[in-house]
Design a protein around this nucleic acid. Structure first.
Lengths: 254, 254
DNA sequence: GATTTTTTCTTTCAACTGCTAACATACCCC
DNA sequence: GGGGTATGTTAGCAGTTGAAAGAAAAAATC
């Protein structure tokens, strides 16, 4: 086994389990503990790990303003559950709008067995994901590339969104809160998402359970502006009552 | 066995197994380890491998199975030479237009040390490549995703291109021929490229040497519509004379 | 709370393996 | 034959590893 391979495997394990133990790794890879420590040193220098007595813990990249590729691995299971629920909501021939988020990538992937969809998006990743489907109409809004994201923003993007009227918009966000509404990391994004909301009839929010009670910087809309909320786990009873009260459908996994 | 054959076999093995070991390859092909190392050097220069102590690991292309990943291997050396020449033509602060091509990806990569560029493109790959630069204005034209390509086409794309006026356009094509002019594979692409040509002052064609005397389906423009041709190898004397005669600058490698 | 014991960490060293660079040789194509 | 490329050889250098010893941290004991 090459040294780099071992280091990468340790990193993978670290990302899955959030922590690693020197003695375990030493046994697992059949190398001395010193070698493992040296690997952890490197991972620490690279910013992935933080060494502790007996092992190391994962450095959680606060997802506020991180490049896209780094954020990808969080709560994959949840995003898959959400994607499967959304898949049942979409019919052949639908016109949908999707925003830039990891969840959105999972969703369009789950939709690939549909026919004749029209997808409007400002997400580069969604375009890449859909570059191999046939018979669909995949439309990019255009716009300015937001630094360190794979998303298009700005006036051109808004203009692009406004020139289409769709059946459904599938939105993501950084936070959902009864008082503060639906919020996102920065104004560029919330602007685009606002425009998307106004360009489609049915407004669906797709968020994993960790986003509840979170509040981020820039407001997109009120919770009551939504028609439906899709999430991976059953929300708290207070939320379910709130949704029922306001006439918002709520679907969740399990 | 020819050297190239061996190199390609190593690349295949690398893509299958994600890693290769110098000692194994040396035994497998019955050549010295130094020869293997030299092969790995080349693969590293071409961007496929990353050498490590004892072997090399595969450089994972950000977007693993792009439909056109096959095209990428062709004449990488030539594209790099072209990119280096173009790099010297572009100044800080320039507004440029680039089309979707592998060459374009190399070019924008070579430009990353420039400051304050504005790039207009309908290539998804160029956007991905530029997602990590800071201080630039990277603008996507928007448009419809062309099936099995990572390129935006159609009326929306044309509209997007027409709304900007740039200093330089860097164009690629499938064929360049004195009689038939500059041609490309399909009408969608040639439409977009026509629009790009009309949106910039200086019109630069970046083509590797294999495209000379080739004719493809859809005409973009006449050779005389260009201001400059950049290629990797010195073109035939007939071409050099033709360029001189028509007042078209021609730059080439070596 | 202080002392002892245990565990883990850091540093240093030596052995080993693999790497780089320079040169020599063989081969091919013109 | 001669220039260029591909390959092999060599020697000195660099990276990787494990062992050992002392330092530091945590746990156990009094």
């Amino acid at each position: 086994m090459l040294a780099v391979e071992r280091k990468n495997l340790i990193l993978e394990r670290l990302q899955e389990q959030k922590r690693v133990v020197v003695s375990e790794l030493s046994e697992l890879f059949d190398v001395s503990e010193e070698t493992i420590r040296r690997d952890l040193d490197k991972l620490e220098k690279e910013g992935f790990a933080s060494k502790t007595y007996g092992g190391a813990v994962l450095v959680e990249n606060n997802n506020t303003d991180m490049p896209f590729s780094v954020r990808q691995k969080r709560n994959i299971q949840g995003k898959k559950i959400i994607a499967d629920i959304i898949e049942e909501l979409i019919q052949d021939g639908d016109h949908i709008v999707v925003d830039p988020s990891t969840t959105a990538v999972f969703i369009v992937n789950a939709l690939k067995n549909k026919k004749d969809l029209t997808v409007v998006t400002n997400s580069i990743e969604v375009l890449v994901e859909l570059s191999d489907v046939s018979g669909w109409d995949v439309i990019s809004t255009g716009g300015t590339l937001k630094e360190n994201y794979l998303a298009l923003v700005g006036p051109k993007a808004l203009e692009g969104i406004h020139s289409f009227n769709s059946d459904k918009v599938i939105l993501s966000c950084k936070g959902i809160d009864m008082g503060k509404g639906i919020t996102d990391a920065n104004e560029m994004f919330s602007q685009v998402k606002k425009a998307m909301l106004s360009s489609a009839k049915q407004k669906i929010l797709a968020v994993d359970s960790t986003k509840f009670e979170q509040v981020a910087f820039s407001k997109i809309c009120d919770v009551t502006d939504l028609d439906m909320v899709v999430t991976d786990k059953k929300p708290a009873d207070a939320w379910l009552e709130y949704f029922k009260d306001k006439g918002i459908a709520c679907l969740y996994g399990e």
